[in-house]
Write a protein that binds this DNA or RNA. Structure first.
Length: 422
RNA sequence: GUGGGCGUAGCUCAGCUGGUAGAGCACUCGGUUGUGGUCCGAGAUGUCGCGGGUUCGAGCCCCGUCGUUCACCCCA
């Protein structure tokens, strides 16, 4: 009887050895700057009440209207796998009253997110993001710091071929005034049916259209930046000034469009140039009304999400991954049962002393075990057999040049620590 | 969701106008009773993604399906 193989779900990216080491490294580099700035971990559920996203992210967005993994649980509740991180953070902050203490609340998160899209290079149905949120204060200096933290993360990866784009979506009054003029402008354009329909749902979408003919049509469209209220404009000026002071390069992109409804004020995106169609490696912005809409107090907040999968692709494209050394220090080759017992106990002791130790398992010939030791990249090898056990001495072999050094088993730990300068 | 490309050994891929499946690398063992890398020799491994159809005969042609990939769309 032979069983059929089972396939993994469509569109998921799995990280397996040896590439998984690079993934882990990228994720750590991206989040390190947040930890350094006093942001603290929030570990949240990957599934939430569907209403959290329909209300928080916005029913008209593509993310909510056609990309969510939604299902009914056994209790008849409508559940959705989280498509983004901010709404869940806000829900937890409100529910656990984190906003009742010192503001701003500064938190970071890391994990899987889910969108039911057609998979493509850099676009997966389960993807990884790290993100931060600073909740409770509307201060342009926080906007600048949040951007600086994301910027630092990409710098940590050694990336160069990307740009930071920023804009301001202003306050409610700014957007309302602009929307009237923009709608009037679009109405006069000669658009195909699908495009006109998209414009109706979100007129800003047309700014993002990749077709040159649409770009030409939109060249003279009214820009939201020209409709900013005095306070919004002053705030945006301050953010830019802070960024310049921190020597963070940016370009203003007045045509930037974000896919989540809750963004207001300062909004930004990191775009990489070597990634094909899915070029956004991170983005975020301020959200004024989100907390209130989710049943909390009326507090502003700002945050970002960085794509770990895409950051890894970018680092590969730029060849900026470090040649990290994940190999073992010592490979122990026991010959026979009593030798195996000694290998297991010796390995315990050596590992406790910080020496990365592997054991050759299975009843294989010495030559095969040596080959395995070679493949593992271990720097030293020790063969443990009857003669070593009776004499109490082993030959410590340095793999780089094959030199053998006779060492007392009791001295092995100190000898290795010295040789590895631990 | 729409459109195009591609699915043959663990990996990268060959496979003629349809005639019954191969290479390189990797792997295992041996040459060298207990010391790797090079070299030499031997060996194992495939439901040709899956299901139908056409045919005397299908890896090859046709249909469907699943996966993958690229673009649209969307975004991390």
């Amino acid at each position: 009887m032979k069983y059929e193989k089972i396939q993994g779900p469509k569109g998921v990216r799995e990280y397996l050895p040896p590439e998984s080491a690079a993934f882990e490294w990228v994720r750590e580099q991206l989040i390190a700057p947040a930890k350094a700035a006093g942001y603290q971990l929030m570990e949240l559920p990957v599934f939430e009440d569907t209403n959290l996203f329909t209300r928080g992210v916005g029913e008209s967005t593509d993310v909510v209207s056609k990309e969510m993994y939604t299902f009914e649980d056994r209790g008849g509740r409508s559940i959705t796998l989280r498509p983004e991180g901010t709404a869940g953070v806000m829900r937890a902050v409100i529910e656990q009253n984190l906003d009742r203490g010192q503001l701003p609340v500064k938190v970071w998160y890391s994990g899987q997110f889910f969108r039911a899209e057609r998979p493509q290079a850099g676009r997966y149905r389960q993807f990884y993001q790290v993100g931060i949120e600073a909740i409770g204060l509307d201060d342009p200096a926080i906007d600048a710091e949040v951007i600086a933290i994301a910027y630092r993360g990409f710098k940590n990866l050694g990336l160069r071929n990307y740009r930071l784009e920023i804009t301001s979506l202003g306050d409610a009054q700014s957007r309302a005034a602009h929307r009237i003029d923009l709608m009037a402008f679009i109405k006069k354009l000669d658009l195909d049916e699908a495009t006109a329909k998209r414009a109706e749902i979100n007129p800003l979408r047309l700014f993002d259209d990749k077709r040159p003919e649409v770009q030409t049509l939109m060249a003279k469209a009214p820009l939201l930046l020209d409709y900013l209220s005095d306070s919004s404009r002053m705030s945006f000026e301050l953010v830019q000034g802070y960024l310049r002071a921190m020597k963070i390069d940016f370009v203003i992109n007045p045509r930037m469009v974000r896919g989540l409804d809750y963004y207001t004020g300062t909004t930004f995106e990191f775009v990489h140039s070597d990634l094909g169609a899915q070029s956004g490696i991170g983005g975020g912005g301020r959200y004024d009304g989100l907390m209130e809409i989710l049943g909390g107090q009326s507090l502003s907040g700002i945050g970002f999400g960085l794509g770990v999968d895409r950051a890894l692709l970018a680092a590969i494209a730029e060849n900026s991954l470090p040649a990290e050394d994940f190999t073992s220090d010592l490979f122990l080759i026991p010959l026979g049962e009593s030798a195996m017992e000694m290998a297991l106990t010796t390995a315990q002791e050596l590992r406790a002393a910080g020496i990365r130790t592997e054991i050759a398992f299975g009843d294989r010939a010495l030559k095969g075990a040596m080959k395995a030791a070679d493949k593992s990249g271990a720097r030293y090898v020790v063969v443990l057999g009857d003669s070593e056990i009776s004499s109490g001495n082993v030959d410590l072999k340095r793999m780089s040049d094959g030199v053998l050094t006779s060492v007392k088993i009791t001295q092995l730990r100190d000898q290795l620590r010295q040789a590895l300068s631990l």
